[in-house]
Design a binder for these strands. Sequence first.
DNA 1: CAGAATCCTCCCGGATACTG
DNA 2: CAGTATCCGGGAGGATTCTG
Lengths: 125, 125
Amino acid sequence: MIEPLDPDMFDPMCPSSAIPFQIGDKWTGMIVRCLADGPRRFTELRVPLRTITPKVLTATLRAMQRDGLVTRTAYDENPPRVEYELTELGRSMLILIDAARTWSEQYLPAILAARRASEELTTFR
Amino acid sequence: MIEPLDPDMFDPMCPSSAIPFQIGDKWTGMIVRCLADGPRRFTELRVPLRTITPKVLTATLRAMQRDGLVTRTAYDENPPRVEYELTELGRSMLILIDAARTWSEQYLPAILAARRASEELTTFR
DNA sequence: CAGAATCCTCCCGGATACTG
DNA sequence: CAGTATCCGGGAGGATTCTG
């Protein structure tokens, strides 16, 4: 039994516009990370992604499925249960994402500082 | 004297929608790579970026400057000369970009294959 | 629970033309 | 050469509502 996803999973990086890189579109990278520990259900994914709408989550998952990053398994139960799981290809992105996270942890403060500094230049003038 | 930029620098990755990750916005990653070997001029950057318009190139460079990724040096000459150069912070992104390129070289074929495969499913039905 | 359907908005990025 | 100044369209993504 894997642990439930932390609702605040993406809070630390939440000034997301401050981060100079993304994996794929807006959500793909975060979804890959959510699936790192094992398969997850649709609603389960919505928790840490917080502001994502079902429409966009569906669309993103479909695209990832199309590209061979995740598999979709629907169990014939009631209420319905659907699980998404990383493929090998999807798992291979994890190292990339980790590299990005490490970089971000290291350098994000510098970026924010540079941004604040250039902001002050335009403010006092 | 550093070598001129190859106009076809980004041709191999040109089905860009097929690539599941980006660095920052559409152009930032490519610009960082263009500056890897040393400072470049505005017009010089336009060569490998090909379809970028001056407005967008300016906007992207300004944003990168604001975030401390590049420096802008204007020489008081006629005709004017301006050079863009990576900061240390900007250079630190190179390893990340290289990791992304390596990943892409390795797995892009698999993604395209998966995409083609799922396309055939919807076509013949 | 896991979506589908519909409508809508914002804004990124392009096209074009002009200039110190 | 290195940009500005306008204008503009498309498409990603959000809000809302409904359903097997």
